[in-house]
């Protein structure tokens, strides 16, 4: 059993764990394990996107209005941030493979920074939505409306619907046009879009946080020289698979959530 693959790394734990026969088997297992895990992640997001699709088939207008009320600029910036972080983590793998300790730390750190800035923007976006009152919920209020015969009546609608109307009317001309065509029932049902918006982006954020935690852990490991035996670059590699997957999810969320409505550059800056 004593092959050279069992050489001790830095006097710490052996590079090849006790139950593997050689380093190639271990690397292949680790890599394959992450791919299998990503399959479950695909199905996890697939489930909620399937629900999203079903609801959007029923309520295309509501989804369009809901998406129009979102902030597309922050989302666009975030897309580029995530793509850049995917790029930097790829460079980190290469650095680990080549045994470049400083390069590895640099690229891991930049990935962490880019991810954190993403989360910062995300928090700003959530806060903006919160300030605009775009939070679905059972709270009701009364508004002036007209019934079928044109007689003015008081109508009970959700607070969300009122806020949505307000947001759309003050956003830009296109948004106002969409809002004007909506009935109060449709405004109420736009909550459904926001349930999807918060739950999907929320899950994405949770995945980001987990990923950032792991990246910080790897940065610490890089600092103490865990990755000196370059065989261990495979751990950076599987981490990057996960990180790329988070990016992949965002690539699909961007058109489905943010770009499903009508946006214009008016009032962008």
């Amino acid at each position: 059993m004593a092959t050279n693959a069992h050489a001790e790394g830095e006097g710490r734990q052996p590079i090849v764990a006790h139950h593997f026969n050689n380093i190639r088997q271990q690397q292949a297992s680790v890599r394959f394990g992450m791919w299998v895990f990503l399959v479950t992640e695909v199905l996890f997001f697939g489930g909620v996107l399937c629900a999203y699709a079903a609801c959007r088939i029923w309520y295309p207008k509501e989804f369009e209005a809901g998406s129009t009320a979102l902030n597309p600029f922050i989302a666009s910036i975030n897309t580029f941030l995530l793509l850049s972080s995917s790029f930097t983590i790829t460079l980190a793998i290469r650095a680990a493979y080549k045994g470049q300790r400083d390069g590895l730390r640099l690229w891991l750190a930049s990935t962490i920074v880019l991810g954190t800035v993403f989360l910062g923007f995300k928090a700003k976006e959530y806060y903006g939505d919160y300030e605009e009152g775009l939070i679905p919920g059972p709270q009701k209020t009364l508004v002036d409306d007209v019934d079928a015969t044109g007689k003015p009546v008081l109508r009970e609608v959700s607070v969300f619907a009122v806020n949505l109307k307000h947001v759309l009317e003050h956003k830009n001309a296109k948004a106002k046009a969409i809002s004007d065509k909506m009935t109060w029932n449709e405004r109420d049902r736009t909550q459904m879009f926001f349930v999807f918006y918060y739950s999907i982006t929320g899950l994405h954020v949770i995945h980001m946080i987990v990923g950032l935690g792991l990246l910080v852990w790897q940065l610490i490991l890089a600092q103490i020289g865990f990755f000196e035996p370059t065989e261990r670059h495979v751990y950076i590699e599987v981490m990057s698979l996960y990180w790329h997957f988070v990016d992949l999810v965002w690539i699909f969320l961007f058109p489905l959530l943010y770009m499903a409505g009508h946006h214009s550059m008016d009032g962008a800056f």
Binding site: R24, T90, L91, R94
Partner: peptide, 17 residues
Amino acid sequence: PIVFEDDHAEPASVASS
């Protein structure tokens, strides 16, 4: 050595990335 499915490859070059 036991490697049933060998998936070893060098990481992408900086230019390619």
